[in-house]
Amino acid sequence: MNGFGRFIPLLIVVVLVGVFLSVMMSDRNPKEIKSVMIGKPVPTFEIPNLFDGQSALTDARLRSGKPVIVNFFASWCLPCRAEHENLVTLASGYTVDVIGIAYKDDPEASRDFLDELGNPYAAAGVDRDGRLAIDWGVSGVPETFLIDGEGVIRYRHWGPIVGDSLRVQLLPQLEELQ
């Protein structure tokens, strides 16, 4: 190892350190799985309404010509509780409908959850066995989707909308659509 060879280990390390640095600076969450649904139309579905006596929730509700936000939640999910305040802010302060889908949750418990914390949802459906969530590629609750007026998924927020992620991530995407 007398010629150029003796520099090779050093070069490899320099490259690796550079890659690690860029990964760490990019505030990527390694637990996050990218959605393959971006740019695709929402799956067709028809699920019962969370509130008795109201008509079933279908994908037609997501093709109203205006952007909507779809939020998968559950009463048993602690991070959902954490992001709830931001959903209320979103629904009251910005002209956008938030549609809630209760994931693998007892409808009674979901309603109690909304009674307790306030109901930000313009409409809410029940995905009791989690089948719809599979169609949407949801990896866990909470997960939030931004749908444009034509029913195409434009953005997916993985995990709770807490801290500055409403202001920094979700709102700019929404404003772009509006």
Partner: peptide
């Protein structure tokens, strides 16, 4: 720390190995 320790020692290696 990794960059200093590994990078430093490998630089030393590249310099002194001959």
């Amino acid at each position: 720390f990794l960059a200093v320790v590994v990078g430093g020692s490998l630089s030393l290696y590249a310099w002194r190995a001959p």
